[in-house]
């Protein structure tokens, strides 16, 4: 199958007030097939949110980007905002972090979902209302509730409405930034079930950004583990859990309490490196529990496994 979205060597820099530069995303590459669910995981500040904002072309003016974002064979990053804009919301859309709290309290849910439809001149008036009702039904809310105000919806329902809004223009790729943070476990389960069902039914590809590994294990088929702006390891969730190639992946798993596992939970000492200065060697080396001497000075080589499983690590044996 041809990928619907391919990212090749994507870089993002931010200007800092002190004339320095923050290299937030340092050349990431991966491809996403239709209907695929990819998890993007890592600690805060590792560049996951910046990476997906770049895919939406929603970087602030202090940012600069390089690389390729190939949507259906065309590099949409090549012309900057001019080439990104036509695809934003139409082909790639996003459920923002905290989207459920971002609705305008004085407008009805329906009118806010309609906004992108009307703006894109896909429909207006009655047709737009019909489309809105259809979208709400798609996410499990009765279409007759489109004239309600945000405060009349519970948190879970607002999150569903935010998903409906992202689906308004029939995108091919859905980016979800921490879609269940701040939701209770039961509502989280409902939302995850909805996302899985939507991707299955609509052939929608999804990238889910989260810091919660178990969530990715349960929802996604593949996952990319980001560290210091790079993809440290990418592969199927099965491979990441059972045969990780990068110690960071293994250590992240063992830092996460798992409901039924008995082994002790271990935190990862230290903190991610600052990205406003150049990195030498493997960025994870200072925190790694199995670092070799080469790790401090030489960039980590590529290690590959089966099914597109790859990682950047000096270790040769299993980690």
């Amino acid at each position: 199958m041809t990928p619907v979205l391919a990212i090749e060597g994507l870089h993002v820099w931010f200007e800092l007030p002190n004339h320095k530069e923050l290299h937030a995303v340092q050349g990431i590459s991966f491809a996403l097939e239709p209907g695929e669910r990819l998890g993007l995981v890592g600690e805060s500040g590792c560049g996951k949110t910046t990476a997906i904002l770049a895919m939406m072309g929603l970087l602030p003016p202090t940012a600069s980007a390089a690389g390729k974002i190939i949507l259906n064979g065309d590099d949409i990053l090549a012309g900057g905002d001019a080439t990104m804009r036509p695809h934003r919301w139409m082909d790639i859309s996003m459920v923002f972090q905290g989207a459920m709290n971002a609705f305008d309290p004085v407008k009805t849910i329906g009118s806010q979902i309609q906004e992108p439809i009307v703006k894109a001149k896909l429909a207006d008036g009655k047709a737009a209302r019909l489309r809105t009702a259809e979208l709400l039904e798609l996410v499990g809310i009765s279409g007759s509730r489109q004239d309600r105000y945000p405060h009349e919806f519970s948190g879970g329902m607002r999150q569903r409405a935010a998903i409906a809004m992202a689906l308004a223009c029939d995108p091919k790729v859905l980016l979800a930034d921490e879609p269940t943070t701040a939701l209770d476990v039961m509502v989280q389960a409902q939302i995850l079930e909805l996302l899985v069902q939507l991707t299955d039914d609509l052939g929608l590809a999804m990238i889910m950004v989260t810091h919660d590994l178990p969530l990715v294990s349960q929802v996604c088929t593949r996952a990319a583990v980001m560290y210091a702006g790079e993809i440290a390891e990418i592969g199927t969730t099965h491979a990441l859990y059972h045969e990780p190639l990068h110690p960071y992946t293994r250590m992240l798993f063992s830092a996460t309490p798992d409901l039924l596992a008995e082994q002790t939970v271990r935190s990862i000492p230290g903190a991610p490196p600052r990205l406003d200065q150049p990195l030498v060697g493997c960025p994870f080396q200072p925190r790694c529990d199995s670092a070799l001497t080469a790790c401090a000075s030489e960039a980590a080589p590529l290690r590959t496994g089966t099914d597109g499983h790859r990682a950047y690590c000096h270790l040769k044996e299993t980690v």
Partner: peptide, 23 residues
């Protein structure tokens, strides 16, 4: 509640028993 907690092992197929609605 126990059934819907995501687990690290993707192969541990949980059958989430999702309650509808909210508290």
């Amino acid at each position: 509640l126990v059934s819907v907690v995501p687990q690290s092992d993707p192969d541990r197929a949980t059958k989430p028993q999702i309650l509808q609605g909210e508290t």
